[in-house]
Write a protein that binds this DNA or RNA. Structure first.
Ligand code: FES
Ligand code: FES
Lengths: 148, 148
DNA sequence: CCAAATAGGACTGCATTGGTTCTGTATAGT
DNA sequence: ACTATACAGAACCAATGCAGTCCTATTTGG
């Protein structure tokens, strides 16, 4: 229903938590405990975020995860992308041949533009922003200027 | 994966098609044929759009559907909302008690703002806009001005 | 009355998601 | 060297929601 997966929500909460103390090393167990979410689930998410190179890891006793970049250098779009794959509102927004309506479809390119706007909006919000109690309303200066 | 349902995509294509000849009456069979999508599926979508009062219908021989409002008065957000229900990126974005992380969650209010930005963006695009070959890029003037 | 067309459900197969479990590997401390 | 801790990666399963179909009214023009 045009919403992010619950796991993605968890992931952002995890990342924001870590963004509050960057450089610090968090174990999966510790994070799961703080968050109140089962440990295996948290572990899986952290692995995904690691593969996307948003986290760095240390194995062994006393190991754990830490942010790979500064909090302001990681965007919400990065986190969403790491868990859900590339952002594509419509089937046809990701490459050709995915949508059965392609031939003669009038909405494809316009959807792609909407898609791009969403991506930009998510890229504009960093973990550092999310860690603040409340960020300013995002202002969408929308297309009152349209094609002729 | 943060994408609209395929049926929603169909619905927008249908609406845009009708927006190109407003006032005209389209039967489900005719639209299904034009679109290359099975007739029952199209019929179901049209019923949903009708209930959301985006369409008007005429029964009986020679009946069909037509836009309930002018093309510029119907937004993409309306269509998405009609098919998928109210727009809510996160569980917690729609009312209390939906998200298990609620207590002490630092990202809730910020997600709600992102949510609102998306809604505004979709509301800003009308069927008339979508019917044009290509609308101007949506410009998101994002929150470089954040909370202190 | 009949045919065309919508109105409204109920129903089903399938894909995705949320969540678990298992095996393997690296590391710190004893 | 041994062991406990903690990550790495994959396979696995149950449940939810989606895409699509079907069936039975009801309305209306001819
Ligand atoms: S190509 Fe997918 S809806 Fe137009
Ligand atoms: S309340 Fe749902 S993620 Fe914070």
């Amino acid at each position: 229903m045009l919403r992010i997966a619950k796991l993605t929500d968890y992931a952002t909460v995890l990342m924001v938590r870590m963004a509050r103390e960057p450089g610090c090393c968090f174990s999966a167990a510790q994070l799961a405990d703080e968050l109140g979410v089962p440990q295996p689930t948290v572990a899986k998410l952290l692995k995904h975020l690691l593969r996307a190179q948003l986290l760095a890891s240390a194995r062994g006793v006393g190991g754990g995860y830490s942010l790979a970049l500064a909090p302001h250098a990681i965007s919400v779009a990065d986190v969403v992308g790491a868990i859900e794959g590339p952002l594509a509102l419509t089937e046809c927004a990701r490459g050709k041949g995915n949508c059965s309506l392609e031939r003669g479809c009038a909405t494809r390119t316009n959807w792609q533009l909407i898609n791009r706007a969403l991506r930009v909006a998510l890229q504009a919000v960093s973990l550092a922003d999310m860690a603040r109690p409340q960020l300013q309303p995002i202002h969408v200066q929308a297309l009152q200027e349209k094609m002729p």
